[in-house]
Design a protein around this nucleic acid. Structure first.
Lengths: 242, 242
DNA sequence: ATAATTAATATGTATGTACATTACTACAAT
DNA sequence: ATTGTAGTAATGTACATACATATTAATTAT
């Protein structure tokens, strides 16, 4: 673990301070409510200015990991750990974390013309084909999600890739595309016959429907994703602060 | 609209700068991609230091409203507007915004003993009664949500309050309780008979189910809220960044 | 024309300093 | 015992300043 700052490192001091703070946050005593060292002392100990340390603390406060109070000091927020980053675990990682073995029931890849909404989102002409991927996944005995993904042609996917590997990892390593921003719309629907069959439920039965718009670092669209989740098999958690 | 800074105001300069920036962001030309005035000039124009202005800009960058690039300048993020704050509009405000007239179908207030989970969340003994509020709301011709709220006794609600007024506004003004953090769990359910009747749908039909844990500034629990939304009447939007 | 170099301009990093505000602590006065 | 008051320790606000770095634009050399 890193607990000191290297002034010669190319990594900015505030970034180094941030990782040190994240390590502190992970410590049990701070998790249990112990106040962190105060800004002035800590800045001195790390041999950086208070302003620089503050830059790091601010980021973590914005993220909701730390809570500051005058006179009282700075503490780790109750129930913090890694709530935010959870959003960015892949499906398989998340399932692994919950101890659920997963099975891929169907996996189908094809090239299709985008409808108007999709062409619009991707900012391409409607005669430009896009890669469509459909898959059904779930527990070995029970499929519980039906996904449809469309990928922007700019990425350069051929359709012959191994889609069983974690997707965003693949995009990052092989295609240098880093998914950074995701806008999602979640609603409840009655299942149509085709979806109901895939999920092995009754037509008209409840499903959670999630639309997902994914962007890269430059705010460029890279994926449009539709997910139909069997009711009660999936809980979406959100944390928001004002 | 505010476009200048009052150095005598008790409102911190960086906070004033922030609202000015939010106004700029709302401007059409900046929405369309025009770069904002650069930091040094803008700081001079507003007669504040660059550091102070940067404090304000940073916050908006963290929120995902602004994007900075060296040499190029700072721009409004694509599709920004007010995505984050939307989360914190009251039900009635949100409906007003969408031009939907609302009607309160049922409103029922009572004192009940908390179940174990609730007592645990509120950190109170199970023999301490809590205020429960149930209500059904929707369009004049169509109820589409059934809410159940439990309020922490610490707040001091009597049950005789006028619950037709915006709730969080009331808590803030009359009870000095500022709801700051909300943790939510969203899933799809099949409606039970009682809920189905209230929403005028078939038993077993799809509903969006939202659990909401609300905390005040000191991270103390203040409200536990359950919401059953008629399918397709409610879309939950989330934006997340990593 | 093309490529390499340089200059200009924006944000990024970092420091030192000063005083304000908040809220807890301890002590004194009632 | 309660209330008031002063001290103090933490974060909060704000400034001036300096140099680094990335990226575009302009210039120069090939």
């Amino acid at each position: 673990m890193k607990y000191s700052i290297d002034h010669k490192s190319p990594i900015p001091l505030h970034a180094q301070a941030e990782t040190i703070l994240r390590n502190l946050i992970a410590d049990e005593e701070y998790q249990n409510g112990k106040v962190l060292p105060n800004e002035v002392d800590l800045a001195n100990k790390l041999a950086i200015s208070r302003t620089t340390l503050r830059q790091a603390i601010n980021k973590l406060v914005f993220e909701g990991l730390l809570i500051r109070k005058k006179r009282t000091g700075t503490k780790v927020a109750q129930g913090a750990v890694s709530s935010k980053s959870n959003n960015w675990l892949s499906f398989s990682q998340e399932m692994k974390l919950r101890g659920i073995p997963i099975k891929n029931f169907e996996l189908h890849v094809s090239w299709v013309f985008p409808d108007e909404a999709l062409a619009n989102f991707f900012e391409i002409k409607p005669d430009r084909k896009v890669l469509k991927m459909e898959r059904v996944r779930g527990r070995p005995d029970e499929p519980f999600v039906y996904f449809i993904s469309y990928f922007h042609p700019r990425i350069g996917l051929t359709g012959d890739e191994d889609f069983k590997r974690p997707l965003y990892e693949m995009l990052e390593n092989e295609y240098s595309i880093i998914a950074t921003l995701s806008k999602e719309e979640i609603s409840a629907h009655a299942a149509d016959t085709s979806t109901a069959n895939k999920l092995r439920i009754q037509t008209g039965g409840p499903v959670l429907f999630r639309k997902r718009f994914v962007f890269d670092q430059g705010e460029r669209p890279i994926e449009y994703n539709l997910g139909y989740y069997k009711a009660d098999s999936f809980v979406y958690t959100v944390e928001s602060r004002r």
